[in-house]
Amino acid sequence: MIDNWETPLVTDNLSITVGAVTLVVLAAIGGLIFPAIKWLNPQKAVQGYIKKSVIAFLGFLFMNVHLILFDPLFIARGKLKRLLKLK
């Protein structure tokens, strides 16, 4: 450092590249966002997704059970022909 004490910090061959600017911007954004990560709870978010998917699946399951098993029985039971025969 002492050897280079007299060397100027900014030399004529310094170039500002797109890559360098991108890195600086990303670093700045990262510096702002990373501290906020502690407020995020990935576990909770994932749990939310899983819960909602389970609800969607249960809805799908119960409704299909109803449609495949109970509905046809209900419809068959309420056929007009059947009523007229019972009478």
Binding site: A56, M63, D71
Partner: peptide, 21 residues
């Protein structure tokens, strides 16, 4: 009517996900 439209509303998994999200 006898397709049971009300129940069918929730009978498709992908449609359920779409309704949720």
């Amino acid at each position: 009517v006898q397709c049971n439209l009300r129940t069918r509303t929730l009978a498709n998994f992908w449609a359920n996900l779409r309704m949720i999200y």
